[in-house]
Nucleic acid binder design. Sequence first.
DNA 1: CGTAACATTGACCCCTCTCAAGTGCCGTGG
DNA 2: CCACGGCACTTGAGAGGGGTCAATGTTACG
Lengths: 239, 239
Amino acid sequence: MTSPLIAKLDRRDRLDASERSALDDLPGSPRRVHAGVELVREHERPSASLLVLDGFCARVSLLQSGGRQITQIGVAGDFLDLHGFLMKQMDHSVVALTGVVVAEIPHDRLRRLTEDYPHLLRLFWLDTLIDAATHRQWILGLGRRTARARLAHLICELQLRLETAGRGQGDSVALPLNQATLGDVLGLSNVHVSRVLKEMREMDLARWSDGVVTVLDRPGLWREAEFDPDYLRLERAPV
Amino acid sequence: MTSPLIAKLDRRDRLDASERSALDDLPGSPRRVHAGVELVREHERPSASLLVLDGFCARVSLLQSGGRQITQIGVAGDFLDLHGFLMKQMDHSVVALTGVVVAEIPHDRLRRLTEDYPHLLRLFWLDTLIDAATHRQWILGLGRRTARARLAHLICELQLRLETAGRGQGDSVALPLNQATLGDVLGLSNVHVSRVLKEMREMDLARWSDGVVTVLDRPGLWREAEFDPDYLRLERAPV
DNA sequence: CGTAACATTGACCCCTCTCAAGTGCCGTGG
DNA sequence: CCACGGCACTTGAGAGGGGTCAATGTTACG
């Protein structure tokens, strides 16, 4: 059941049998949640972390003015509040962008697991470091990339991550996010998202409709985004 | 010599005597570096991490177009490439924004230290989690805050962090960054930074000249920025 | 005293926003 | 079967925040 997590970690550094079974034993009963539900609220002090098993979640921050910014998208195999394990207090909310299946993993389970398996601890730490590297890519995009390059980069990132989670089929991948949500990711208005998406269709780079993204010209898209997948650390290296 | 690091960690969770002395024994000889020097280059695989002892460093990412984005500012007590310890390959460069003093800490020393002191390992992990939380604040700012609120937020953040590092004196703090650099932090042009700085002077919120920031109206500044210091985790809580 | 680096200011432009109207799709109910 | 409302997407028009370019100060320093 934790297989997307195991697959992701194993792609970074080989897991042995005992580590795999320890991870397999982790989750309590998986929970099915509808789109739009707030799974964790800002300022909360959760005693468990949520592992996404299926669907799409997001870390969300709000401004008094009504501004809404998504700071990360979580897919199968991702912890979105693993940092709650050490941070105690949440600095943002986590919402379900689509229907999702999540597993709640109590912090004391994580505590014991990381004490018994230092290698897994390092892999969890690495996972949060990759979150930070992803944040930096988004900062670079929001600060210095054009709206088009920003969108292109997002598509590159999500396609690769979903492929890793075993969710891709060729050049198409299901990404059932609406354009307003996409705007909250890219720091754009829903209107402008629509226009940029149109541009990308007309440039024959990618098509995003009915919740499915199709990459039409991968080299072109990567060039447009200046995409370099190293930050996702998908090659094996000992940790 | 590692005292700003010890001070920062101790503010989050009390360090015992053995942990303090272990940290004290860490660094090799401190190195003095001039402004503008690139301390670590993107794609490098450093075998040591840099601890800032004095001055200002930054994580920098570049675009082919010449766009330059700073993704984090490091002050005394900060590791800026601690993630190299597990990530192996750097996803960005680190440059000295001013003259700085840094200590190089070999990864095998860090490895042994974290194996001998699991509590320090968790504190290091926490430190990188706080980096990520800071990244999220910047993402929120770049995506949804106005230039003015973004600058106000940066001032709030840096003032608080420098105070923690023992670098503040009342409402003034030395921040010897020029406006072009500031633009690379805020995703703005140097020209617009100048304009926004002028606004903030005229609003009697803060003054930033000759490398010194003076906060004139802290409540007003915090309100303008919607600043909430929780994400820096400066209150003690067991880890 | 000449030069370089940084800050300021004005003029003009463009990317993206907001507001608004219009289209298409789908589920529900008569 | 069709009417209806709701939702998401598209498109246009006008406005604005911030960019670029360029001229002018200002200060530090060799």
